[in-house]
């Protein structure tokens, strides 16, 4: 009788990092919260701005995959699954090494998305608090990868931090965080009755206050699976773009029929994930525009990665597009 299965190391590393460091890649609190410097956000309030560190860790995911896959020239898959411990010890990643190899422009771009989201919401008159260095990742990956027993303990810590804020409502930038807060936390945390909203929903409610966008040309929306199917949010994105005067072209597979970006299997099957991402990019471009817009950190990263070399197509987050209106 089989009692246990030895699985690819990357699974344990991700889950250990989440449990021990509150972040899948063991990023430190100050790294995750650096974007908020100068905004002076309060730590307590009715509405909690929640990043979960997800946009911030994007450049590191890609670099982690690249770093590891470069160690073994024979096979990317091999090194991800077998040799991962050569570069990463059991207690977490060598953050300094990974950190150093991340392109500054990627780091700046992804780090600034949280800042931009905050500015967009402030521009619409929302007041919110932020847990700063204390903020913990939602644990969505523990849930995704099946670490449900660990998740049961972990969510108590996260819920504790959230409770500290005194908030009644959480606004999530990532649909994955929103999904677990909405559907998983209430089952695991006693009295977890906060209202869970996404960035998209809050913007949608006050979309008449948005300034017209200077974006020229049409965009195509890549609906995130979680947002469109689990949370049922897809028309809202279109309404928002209509409000800012941006023409939307539709991909053949959209809304609740959207195609996954390939992101969820990136850590275990990086090449396949990449192919799925690039196929999705092709599908999106079939809409007739090269300007792809999404509203999920992992979709953003996976589609960006799915672009062919020298492909002039633009992949950006709704947050980035809206922020250009704020600055004007």
């Amino acid at each position: 009788m089989v009692e246990g299965m030895k699985m690819p190391a990357v699974l344990d590393i991700l889950s250990d990092n989440i449990i021990k460091y509150g972040n899948p890649l063991a990023l430190k609190g100050p790294q995750v919260a650096a974007w908020a410097k100068g905004l002076d956000l309060p730590v307590k309030g009715d509405l909690l701005f929640y990043t979960g560190g997800e946009y911030q860790l994007l450049p590191f995911i890609d670099t982690l995959v690249k770093t590891i896959t470069h160690i073994d020239t024979g096979s990317k898959a091999f090194s991800m699954m077998m040799g991962v411990r050569k570069v990463i010890n059991k207690t977490g990643i060598n953050a300094e090494k990974i950190y150093a190899s991340v392109l500054a422009k990627d780091k700046d771009r992804y780090n600034s998305i949280c800042f931009k989201a905050a500015k967009v919401l402030q521009g619409l008159g929302y007041e919110f608090c932020y847990s700063g260095n204390e903020e913990l990742y939602s644990g969505a990956l523990l849930y995704e990868l099946g670490y449900m027993e660990d998740m049961k303990d972990y969510v108590q810590k996260v819920a504790g931090v959230i409770k500290e804020s005194g908030a009644k409502t959480i606004v999530c930038l990532s649909p994955h965080a929103a999904e677990v807060f909405k559907f998983v936390y209430p089952k695991l945390v006693e009295g977890f009755d906060l209202e869970i909203r996404t960035f998209v929903e809050l913007v949608w409610e006050r979309r008449d206050k948005l300034a017209k966008s200077q974006t020229t040309g049409a965009v195509v929306i890549h609906d995130s699976c979680r947002l469109a199917r689990e949370l049922g949010i897809h028309q809202e994105l279109r309404d928002i773009l209509e409000s800012v005067g941006v023409e939307v072209k539709e991909a053949p597979q959209n809304r609740e029929w959207t195609s996954c970006c390939g992101g969820p299997i990136k850590m275990l099957f990086p090449e396949l994930s990449h192919v799925i991402g690039s196929r999705r990019v092709d599908e999106l471009k079939a809409s007739g525009t090269d300007h792809i817009l999404t509203s999920c950190p992992y979709c953003l990263s996976a589609l960006e990665g799915g672009l062919a070399k020298n492909d002039p197509a633009i992949v950006e987050d709704l947050i980035e597009l809206l922020y250009r209106g704020v600055k004007a």
Binding site: V2, M5, K6, M7, P8, A77, F78, L268, L272
Partner: peptide, 14 residues
């Protein structure tokens, strides 16, 4: 008994 599936993952990925 613990079954080591890491090689299976590699073969499968390939």
């Amino acid at each position: 008994m613990t079954v080591d599936l890491r090689k299976d993952f590699v073969t499968y990925a390939k």
